[in-house]
């Protein structure tokens, strides 16, 4: 995996990225994908501090627990 690919949880606020891979447990991965977080989709990190990470994707806002955000790998868009 190249250096540009980082976990969603380490993306700074207001940055954008393209989802590369979801590597969490099957059930949760599936839920995320059904909500639209599939590889190739653009995500915008709205908030990333202590609590759940808040992202905008496909026009909706979703809060995702940190543990799960660690398992979502994103390629940063410059």
């Amino acid at each position: 995996m190249s250096e540009d690919v980082i976990p969603l949880s380490s993306m700074p606020e207001n940055s954008k990225g393209i989802i590369e891979e979801l590597s969490g447990g099957i059930g949760l991965t599936r839920r995320l994908m059904e909500m639209g977080l599939v590889p190739g989709t653009e995500v915008e990190v709205v908030q990333n501090n202590l609590g759940p990470i808040i992202v905008r994707i496909r026009g909706i806002t979703i809060a995702i627990g940190r543990g799960m955000a660690n398992q979502i790998f994103v390629r940063k868009v410059k």
Partner: peptide
Amino acid sequence: EPELIIEL
């Protein structure tokens, strides 16, 4: 730990 997924 369970993880939150919720649409705002």
